[in-house]
């Protein structure tokens, strides 16, 4: 218990110093945040344009789709804030940061969530959150759905990070630069900003099982907006948490078996 409190304190302190370091270039930082804030603005532009011509897209009304898209921006923003896959991939090849952090007496989750943080993505996350809150204020939400949604959302952010981490580990085996993980997750975030049913059964299966980002975005948002029954929603939350734990195990085992110290 004491260890967990100490680790959590260390996590907050580390992020505080990451902030201080990042904001040493003030002008650039302000523009980075403005740039990431454009993500929710783009969501509003796209969805408003779509609904100028159609009333319900794939069974979702304007505010529901706005909520889904904003939630996608929030989850991807938070996940990238906690860990930028580009930085992790590059560091796995060069071993600059990871070699240093691995020497500290800290658990694996601490290493993941502190070493490759992208502070600027908080602009996107907070912008997405503000838009999400605005959108859901125009919809009706049940208490049970709200509780299940919060669990699914927290688990979902961890799931996205661990999936990014697991895929970034491919840098141990393949590809000279491995900068593709950032591009992959950018596209996955875009795809999950809309109801997965528009991609047909294949898309639904792809985003639920092969690259389970749907468990982090589409399904939690659907639970909140009452698209599923209570039992179905509970089942999704359980699957989401189990998938997150499984990904953590895969990441930990693969990392430990592939990592070779300052070899690079």
């Amino acid at each position: 218990m004491n260890d967990n409190i100490r680790n959590l304190r260390m996590l907050l302190l580390t992020h505080f110093y990451i902030f201080k370091g990042t904001f040493s270039y003030r002008l650039s930082s302000v523009f980075f945040i403005l740039a990431t804030l454009l993500n929710p603005v783009i969501s509003v532009v796209i969805i408003s344009s779509l609904y100028a011509y159609a009333n319900g897209i794939a069974g979702w009304n304007y505010f529901q789709l706005l909520a889904l898209s904003a939630f996608s921006t929030f989850v991807m923003g938070m996940a990238l804030y906690l860990m930028n896959p580009d930085d992790l991939s590059k560091d796995l090849k060069r071993g600059k940061k990871i070699n240093r952090v691995m020497l500290l007496p800290l658990p694996m989750w601490f290493v993941i969530f502190t070493s490759f943080s992208d502070v600027f993505m908080l602009g996107s996350a907070f912008g997405g959150l503000a838009l999400f809150l605005y959108a859901i204020s125009h919809t009706s939400i049940g208490l049970i759905n709200g509780i299940l949604f919060v669990i699914a959302a927290i688990s979902g952010i961890a799931l996205v990070d661990l999936l990014m981490g697991a895929l970034s580990l491919l840098a141990f085996k393949f590809l000279g630069s491995a900068g593709w993980t950032g591009w992959l997750f950018q596209e996955l975030g875009s795809a999950n900003s809309y109801p997965l049913t528009i991609y047909g059964s294949l898309g639904l299966l792809l985003f639920s099982f092969a690259l389970p980002i749907g468990l982090a975005i589409y399904f939690p948002a659907s639970i909140l907006l009452g698209k599923f029954s209570a039992y179905y929603s509970l089942g999704i939350v359980v699957i989401s948490v189990l998938t997150t734990l499984l990904l953590y195990r895969i990441f930990k085992l693969t990392f430990n078996s592939s990592y070779a110290g300052g070899k690079s």
Binding site: L27, F32, L34, A35
Partner: peptide, 11 residues
């Protein structure tokens, strides 16, 4: 003038 302008370019 300001050394780091990554944010400006991204914006």
């Amino acid at each position: 003038y300001v050394t780091e302008i990554g944010g400006v370019i991204m914006f």
